[in-house]
Design a protein around this nucleic acid. Structure first.
Lengths: 227, 227
DNA sequence: CCATACCGAGAGCACTGCTCTCGAAAGTTC
DNA sequence: GAACTTTCGAGAGCAGTGCTCTCGGTATGG
């Protein structure tokens, strides 16, 4: 049961995260300022430290927040389509849309790790794995349904051990080579999205980025063996 | 002819970039401090503004510096192997090695755009395109040699126009679908490298990242039609 | 009803990027 | 070789940052 004090505390903490999110969008992660957030709350800067131990802790909160929202977006996007290939495409589109709508939060999570700051694994790994877990489940289901052409290449011995460990942990029937394919489909997806969001393509090189993305998705899905 | 003054100027500017590079490696882009660089030079902070107009300009210098070194590494790696698929693999390994050896500089260029800062296109696009240009040349040569299975998928109309424009600019024989494949091989490569360098895989999920990368390279090459 | 835990204010420290002025040295011109 | 101009480093200073400390007021739980 939450006391009134606890509820008030949680509410202003929520406000802090919201203001941080706004500021992130405006000025980016590195110029995120606790003092500015304090001003937004009508408090003095030191008061914010009652709620957040440091700037880094605020960053952690924002990272978890972003992971959760992206994970949620992907999971609900996947729910609809009937076959695995369309599910992968839906996941890809969900990632891209969220990233384009929230470039700063995407950058916070998938861009340069904030200098000096190292995300505490116990808080971030859970939310951070939602997307890859969702993708792997798609591939696992595809394999069960016989809709996955597992690549002929056999992973090297050490990689094989890693993959088997993961398959065991998540109770996957998916063979290691299929899991490796899922990982490539994952990293390839984020490579494509990151290049677009971070402006790595030139200014006007691609006037039809969504069509390029479509092409990339198709290539990645085929490469991963999704029929 | 460079006067003594100009040479001295160039030399301390070079020192500034070198110190910036060191500092980048230590504390990352956002905590890069002009004052610290001044201390390293035995100067007072205001003096470095004789050489560099702002922190952002220093960042630009470091970005160009990083692009050039990576481009150089990739170009010389490509020179050796005889066939296109091995050239692509060599390029991939060059990118990965450079990125792992210079994570901060890699992050500066391929990670989160530094907040507020927008790289001046006239300085960065040239060096910034060296890698993709090298990759496209591989694909173009492969196509000329009949070693490229151009994907059957036809790009959408707008994307087609973009691709044709690029092919014209760089005088490529490579058909649009092949160019699109090269782009996916490019973004997929950097997706894989970024995930490893930025620590997006968990702590101990992959104990054999180089074998995973090998697998990713093979999948991307095959997907792009390199035999 | 009162002791306690909480919470905001305020001052202050060390740091940052950046601007200004000033004097000295070096290079250029006559 | 003298006079002028450009360059460059030093120093002070401004506005901003994260973060720490202390000091009161206040709402809460026993």
């Amino acid at each position: 049961m939450a006391t009134a004090r606890e509820r008030a505390h949680a509410r202003t903490l929520e406000k802090i995260v919201a203001l941080g999110r706004d500021q992130l969008a405006e000025v980016g992660p590195a110029r995120l300022s606790l003092r500015e957030i304090a001003r937004g709350l009508g408090m003095v800067s030191s008061a914010v430290y009652r709620y957040v131990a440091s700037r880094d802790e605020l960053l952690t909160l924002l990272i978890v927040d972003a992971y959760q929202e992206l994970g949620q977006a992907v999971e609900s996007a996947i729910a609809e389509p009937p076959d695995p290939r369309q599910q992968y495409a839906a996941a890809g589109h969900a990632v891209r849309h969220w990233a384009l709508a929230n470039p700063a939060r995407y950058a916070l999570v998938f861009g340069t790790p904030v200098p000096g700051y190292h995300a505490p694994a116990e808080l971030t790994t859970g939310p951070g794995t939602r997307v890859i877990v969702a993708l792997v489940r798609i591939f696992d289901a595809a394999w069960q349904a016989g809709a996955l052409d597992v690549p002929q290449r056999e992973p090297g011995p050490a990689l094989l051990a890693d993959l088997e460990e993961i398959a065991r942990e998540y109770r996957l029937g998916l063979p290691p080579a299929g899991l490796a394919a899922a990982v490539t489909a994952w990293t390839g997806l984020f490579g494509a999205v990151s290049f677009e969001v971070f402006g790595q393509y030139g200014e006007n090189t691609f006037r039809a980025p969504e069509e390029l993305f479509e092409e990339q998705l198709a290539a990645l899905a085929t490469a991963a063996g999704l029929r």
